[in-house]
Design a protein around this nucleic acid. Structure first.
Length: 470
DNA sequence: GCCCAATGCGCC
DNA sequence: AAAGGGCGCATTGGGC
């Protein structure tokens, strides 16, 4: 499957929602009749049974059919959940959103394209402080020029670079950037485009990311700023159950490498404190930094310096990500826990004497960069698999909780964010949902790692506003 | 007018 | 508070 050339199914995209006309389904075979050979009477390249049969054949020939079929099942449930979440929608209060915007930016301008009052005030202040009356603070070019003329030394206008600088204009400028960003990304225009009948309906793209993570197209659901999460408010008599997996990716690394020490460090609840307790590093902040470095491939800075300590304390876990990085540099495919393969890179390890030293050096850096990708791929991709299994298990349990009701009449998933879910639930069911979500996290661990004693603790909150969940 | 790259920043 | 991985989106500013 992964090796197969893209076919007509891959090209479907949004068109999948359009019914195919003039075709009646097979009359005598049922979808789950596995014992019957699935010989389709049609040559339609979009025939679902044909595709299903191709997948079965491919599975049977795979290295580990049990794991890969689990991945297929998880992906299938994920696709269903994505459609259901879009159907149900995330409860969204237009008035709460407007209130947030008005507080931060000033009231919505009556003339389209005008700056809201507070933003306009800041723009004038920056112009005056930089002595640049024509300055458009939204134009990086313009801004860089004005800063240089005012004697501020910088090569870019990125917020984190500006923060290092000393000039009276910097503070209002940073404030302006934050506000301008809110207006452009999630302002009134966004509200008009994406919220209908009190619901935000993101267009999820399951498996849209190369690692297996979901993507979205339009609406930017996976980048929903914390600033506006106060607009996510349940219906009257309902609650939001917000659950996120604590330190998911480091725990995934511990589990997939079966690094006993790291698994035990996570057993008490805070993996980073566990790492400190083991004596590997001195502070929680160091533990976090070192783990991030291990998973992303940090080479410099404090993160890079802490890596050897981590490698001494947790040799198996670190060896696993190092191996993934080296494999990537050689152009090899690496794989997640359930068998999703990475794309094949170019082999940059072999010596090619037709290249100039500069070319060889560029080639090496390209290889290292690909190695950082494959290093992260196995962790990010397996975390995505855990999240799919988690959601699938949540859905099964929600189904059992409220059998025989419509999706939106009983507790249902309304939002997903890589390691976090939101469930819209009648108030009286919220406690039960909070319990079931934690049970599902245990089950996800079992589905991926069998009997390994790994824990995936959650932070669960029952709230009346999304941003009330910490 | 449309198309595209660069820039910057939101999320995990 | 970036560095190191993965994304999507709005805006600017250049090309045609």
């Amino acid at each position: 499957m992964a090796q197969a050339q893209p076919g007509p199914w891959d090209a479907l995209g949004a068109a999948v929602l359009t019914p195919i006309e003039g075709r009646s389904g097979p009359a005598h075979s049922t979808l789950f009749d596995f014992e019957q050979p699935l010989v389709s009477e049609t040559t339609d390249p979009l025939d679902a049974l044909n595709e299903f049969e191709r997948q079965r054949v491919s599975l049977a020939g795979s290295v580990d059919p049990a794991r890969l079929s689990r991945l297929l099942a998880a992906e299938s449930v994920g696709a269903l959940i994505a459609a259901e979440m879009r159907f149900a929608g995330l409860p969204w209060s237009v008035s709460a959103h407007d209130q947030i915007l008005t507080e931060m930016l000033g009231p919505r301008p009556t003339v389209e394209g005008d700056r809201p009052s507070k933003l306009q005030f800041l723009a004038e202040k920056i112009r005056s402080l930089l002595d640049a009356p024509q300055l458009n603070p939204d134009s990086p070019n313009d801004l860089l020029r004005a800063l240089t003329v005012a004697g501020v030394q910088t090569t870019s206008t990125r917020a984190w670079e500006l923060k290092q600088l000393k000039h009276p204009a910097i503070e209002p400028l940073l404030e302006y950037k934050k506000m301008s960003r809110l207006l452009a990304a999630n302002g009134w225009n966004w509200l008009d485009s994406w919220v209908r009948d009190g619901r935000f309906r993101p267009d999820y793209v399951p498996g849209g990311v190369v690692t297996g993570r979901w993507a979205t197209s339009g609406g930017g659901a996976l980048q929903l700023p914390h600033l506006i999460r106060g607009a996510v408010i349940p219906d009257a008599g309902w609650k939001l159950v917000v659950a996120d997996a604590s330190q998911l990716e480091p725990r995934i690394l511990a589990a997939m490498s079966a690094d006993r020490g790291m698994v035990e460090a996570g057993a008490s609840g805070d993996l980073y404190e566990g790492i400190v307790a083991s004596g590997a590093v001195e502070t929680r902040a160091q533990a976090k930094l070192a783990m991030l470095g291990a998973m992303y491939g940090a080479t410099t800075g404090e993160s890079g310096r802490l890596m050897p300590k981590l490698a001494r304390a947790y040799p198996r876990a670190i060896q696993m990500v190092e191996d993934a990085a080296r494999a990537g540099e050689r152009g090899e495919v690496v794989s997640t826990q359930l068998g999703r393969g990475s794309p094949r890179g170019a082999d940059t390890g072999t010596y090619d004497d037709s290249l100039t030293p500069a070319q060889r050096s560029a080639e090496r850096e390209r290889g290292r960069s690909w190695g950082r990708f494959t290093r992260n791929f196995i962790v990010q991709g397996t975390a995505a698999e855990w999240a799919l299994c988690w959601m699938a298990s949540i859905r099964v349990r929600l189904d059992a909780l409220a059998a025989g009701t419509w999706l939106t009449e009983s507790p249902h998933l309304v939002f997903f964010l890589h390691d976090e879910v939101v469930i819209h639930s009648p108030a009286e069911s919220a406690e039960a949902v909070a319990v079931l979500v934690a049970d599902a996290a245990h089950e996800a661990g079992r589905l991926l790692f069998g009997g390994l004693p790994v824990t995936f603790p959650l932070t669960v909150a029952i709230v009346d506003r999304y941003d009330a969940a910490k």
